[in-house]
């Protein structure tokens, strides 16, 4: 085995162990798409380690889990046929596939409201200059809560899509996770009505799949510089099409 091949195998092993940071991991996935040797190195590691996963103590799923999955298959973009229609839903599909599971959300309901939110976002965006990325943030029960546009200069525009009753001594604060090693960084505070243009943040250019969230913090903003309050809305950035 040549040195390069060994290095590729090591990298694939770290990828499958889950040890690459999100950027490295995404880069290696892209590499595997165009480099068969990388794709097969990943597949080989998965086969080697599969027995560890398969030997985990089984946990019987709840009785209604299959019904929930089955319902989710009806969501737009969830249909299997990979042919032409998939393209039409590409933004929705990708946003949807990137969203984390939110407690209590049904896939079908969330997807339908998400489609509405994206429609709303696209409509209001037409009147703006072109953002670098746009993130639709969902409430914990899967309803669209806010839209964030992030521009090339690092400034952002936040528009709420739902009413939030903020207690008098609390304020909404906007965060993004540009680098998991650094943790969430504040983009700014929202006045009680919500909509705000936020000043440029000293952050790397926003990337697709970057996490954005809005938390409820003490008046004046989080005292620690990191989120301390409950997450009101949360979602991932995507490039506008």
């Amino acid at each position: 085995m040549t040195e390069d091949r060994a290095a590729l195998q090591d990298l694939a092993g770290e990828f499958v162990l889950g040890l690459l940071d999100p950027d490295e991991s995404a880069a290696f996935e892209r590499r595997a798409e165009r480099e068969p040797a990388a794709a097969s190195a990943i597949a080989e590691w998965r086969e080697r380690l599969l027995v560890l996963d398969a030997a985990a103590a089984p946990v019987l799923p709840s009785d209604d889990l299959w019904a929930r999955i089955d319902d989710g298959l009806d969501a737009p973009g969830a249909e299997a046929p990979p042919a032409a229609p998939a393209r039409k839903f590409s933004l929705l599909t990708r946003l949807w596939s990137d969203l984390p599971a939110w407690r209590g959300a049904t896939l079908a309901g969330a997807a339908a409201t998400l489609a509405l939110a994206i429609f709303a976002a696209a409509t209001y965006r037409d009147a703006q200059r072109q953002p670098q990325v746009i993130a639709v943030l969902l409430t914990p029960d899967g309803k669209p809560g806010a839209v964030i546009d992030v521009f090339a200069d690092g400034s952002s525009y936040v528009a709420p899509l739902t009413d939030v009753s903020v207690p008098a001594d609390r304020i909404m604060q906007v965060w993004t996770l540009a680098d998991p090693a650094v943790g969430p960084v504040s983009l700014g505070l929202l006045a009680e009505d919500g909509s705000a243009r936020l000043r440029p943040a000293a952050l790397p250019a926003p990337k697709p799949r970057q996490l954005y969230e809005i938390t409820l913090e003490p008046d004046g903003g989080s005292p620690t510089g990191k989120p301390t309050g409950p997450i009101l809305f949360k979602g991932f950035a995507e490039r506008p099409r």
Partner: peptide, 22 residues
């Protein structure tokens, strides 16, 4: 947390369905 794991499983099965062709 089992309830979080169930949500992940639910979401993953929709993904399996959608990406099976790949």
């Amino acid at each position: 947390r089992r309830e979080v794991a169930e949500e992940v499983l639910q979401e993953a099965f929709v993904q399996i369905w959608r990406r099976a062709a790949s």
